[in-house]
């Protein structure tokens, strides 16, 4: 398991590994928003939590098809399936590797980009908390989508269509936490909902991902 995690992390940071793709996309989106909606600080501060969440979600979506497709193409997914690792463990490690290379950097980058969108001072903490709590769900749900579409050539479009509706609850509650935090309101309810979605997804979806992957490898 640890061998698989270190291999995936190593591959991600080497040339062509796609590390930084999501980050660069997130950066571009948030830099472009002020140009698109105008430099009015009040308006930017109001939309900042939502824009940062949408940016993070799309950046996450961008790298989903790499989670399993590369291993499927070069045959190592077949070999992993015959290895003494449970399939549930393989998909969990894949999701974790995706989160470490995509979700975690987004969480760390978000406060820096919050400055660009003149996010109010009290909003930073809750922005980081909501992203830290929500991005694992994005990775786990994304791995499920990747398992469903593995083996399809150019399955990226189908993957996005499958995964986007599943991302909506995470986005709603995640952005709500960040918005309320920025407005100085109570965040408990959306925070608990977000935590519920995240932990529920982490606990249940690896079993679903492993099941569809077994069927897809036939």
């Amino acid at each position: 398991m640890i061998a698989l995690l270190t291999r995936d992390l190593q591959l991600a940071v080497r040339a062509g590994g796609g590390f930084g793709l999501g980050l660069a996309f997130f950066l571009i989106v948030t830099v472009l928003v002020p140009f698109g909606v105008g430099p009015e600080t009040g308006l930017l501060a109001r939309i900042a939590p939502g824009m940062l969440w949408i940016g993070a979600l799309l950046a996450c979506l961008l790298s989903l098809d790499r989670i399993l497709a590369l291993d499927w193409e070069d045959g190592s997914l077949d070999l992993l399936a015959t290895a003494p690792l449970p399939m549930e463990g393989i998909v969990s490690v894949k999701a974790l590797a995706h989160w470490i290379t995509t979700g975690l950097p987004l969480v760390l980058l978000a406060p820096v980009l919050g400055v660009l969108l003149s996010l109010p001072m009290q909003g930073y903490l809750w922005l980081v908390v909501s992203l830290a709590l929500g991005t694992p769900a994005l990775s786990v749900i994304g791995t499920f989508g990747a398992a469903l579409t593995v083996g399809l050539k150019r399955g990226g479009l189908l993957l996005s269509l499958l995964v986007l509706p599943l991302y909506v609850p995470t986005l709603i509650f995640g952005a709500e936490v960040a918005r309320r935090g920025a407005g100085g309101l109570a965040v408990e309810t959306p925070l608990l909902m977000l935590a519920g979605i995240s932990f529920g997804a982490i606990a249940l979806l690896p079993f679903a991902s492993a099941a569809v992957l077994r069927i897809n490898l036939r």
Binding site: A3, L4, R7, Q10, L11, R14, G17, D71, D74
Partner: peptide, 21 residues
């Protein structure tokens, strides 16, 4: 298909499978 990772060296590729097994 051999299940090799192009960006890893021969030793890393083989070492990975050795650790998995």
């Amino acid at each position: 298909a051999d299940g090799l990772k192009a960006m890893q060296t021969v030793r890393e590729n083989l070492g990975f499978w050795a650790r998995v097994f």
